[in-house]
Design a protein around this nucleic acid. Sequence first.
DNA 1: TGCAGTACAGACCGGTCGGTATGTAAGATG
DNA 2: CATCTTACATACCGACCGGTCTGTACTGCA
Lengths: 227, 227
Amino acid sequence: MPARANRSPAPRSRGQRVRAPEATRERLVAAAFEEIHRHGYQGAGLDTILANAGVTKGALYHHFTDKADLAHAVIDEVIRGLTLTRWTGPLASYVGDPISGIQSVLKVVADEFCEERLVDKVELGCPLNNLAQEMSPLDERFRRRVAVVFETWIESFAQALERGRKEGSVRREVDARKVATFVVAAVEGSFGLAKNAKSAPLLRENLEVLTDFLDSLRATPATKRRR
Amino acid sequence: MPARANRSPAPRSRGQRVRAPEATRERLVAAAFEEIHRHGYQGAGLDTILANAGVTKGALYHHFTDKADLAHAVIDEVIRGLTLTRWTGPLASYVGDPISGIQSVLKVVADEFCEERLVDKVELGCPLNNLAQEMSPLDERFRRRVAVVFETWIESFAQALERGRKEGSVRREVDARKVATFVVAAVEGSFGLAKNAKSAPLLRENLEVLTDFLDSLRATPATKRRR
DNA sequence: TGCAGTACAGACCGGTCGGTATGTAAGATG
DNA sequence: CATCTTACATACCGACCGGTCTGTACTGCA
């Protein structure tokens, strides 16, 4: 196993304690996110998290009741935040018809993971989907929290599509909610296959097919967008 | 935690040993598949597997070198078999154009999981995808074995689509391989969302959208199939 | 300035679980 | 029938790991 990187070393130099509870908490959550992203919840070791956060058991159990509580914070804060930043945020601020908006967001993500700097992250998969698949049947509290994040994601896409329908850019027969759910499912499925194949190009190609599918929903019969 | 069912009680009544090594091995693999399907590889307990198989550690380590070896057998035999039975087999034996063939297979699966008897299994997700998401970044041997199964699945769909293209039922511009990969990704993504939502209808609806997408690939411009 | 509550540090514990070592009965072999 | 190999059963071990407990330094407050 590769030595685990300990970025942002502990700011405690013994004799000069800093006393920044909020910062400590966030270091713990951030380190937990990393570990869980790499090894899953069950595979994540508290000792590793503590080492990477630069704190000890005392700090952990001061801020959280147990391992699950820490993971809940990871979902509610980090993973939810990432979903908003990557998907709902960019789509909401997009100017233009919603289908082009979703396609634009897909392209941004595809480009991002094809960059040299992030190709390695493809094999770690989507943190949201990872937790969903691992924990949904095991712990109801995990399942619900993850479901909430999925819901906001789907709902933002659904509202965009519904708006497009009313504005005339999206075909009338389209069920915005169903399509939005499908798009999210297809995105997560694409991440999953790319993760197993360790292939960022595979992710990109899948998102391209998804883009074609979205074109087929346009009211103006698919004027072959730029790719 | 719920008491784990021990179906098919051990056939050993002490004093009348049966000596059926192949059967014992298969009982172990079957029990391991169940446990892994429910709790993932890391969460699966050997003691539970042994209890449900009705054998002991001695039997296990006689037939397998370690836990990973047992799981490898689960992938190569059970999960691969399920994939062939559910997807590539039915499609291969379908008479008619390949797009209708894939749609038919999708419908069979959707109906299956909406039955009273199998709705509970939705929340366990697809065994193949579960292992792919959990183990791909952790163990290269797991990743490769899972990738092989995905490959046969995708390839069977790709060949069907390519055949349709040559026969004229599938549009010329369609990249059979890309589309086949996307379909598999969409299926797995749909299973994943349905698993988190604990909703068989959600799975069905997603597969319906996927069916619509497949219609858009027909050379004859989507003559609105039966649903 | 003393005191109390906060924010940790670090040693330790108990259970779980994968794996091993040893024993033994059943079937094959000569 | 003696023996060897196969096919298990069972007791046991040691490591890991989540969680606890106690101690302590810093800080705000009366």
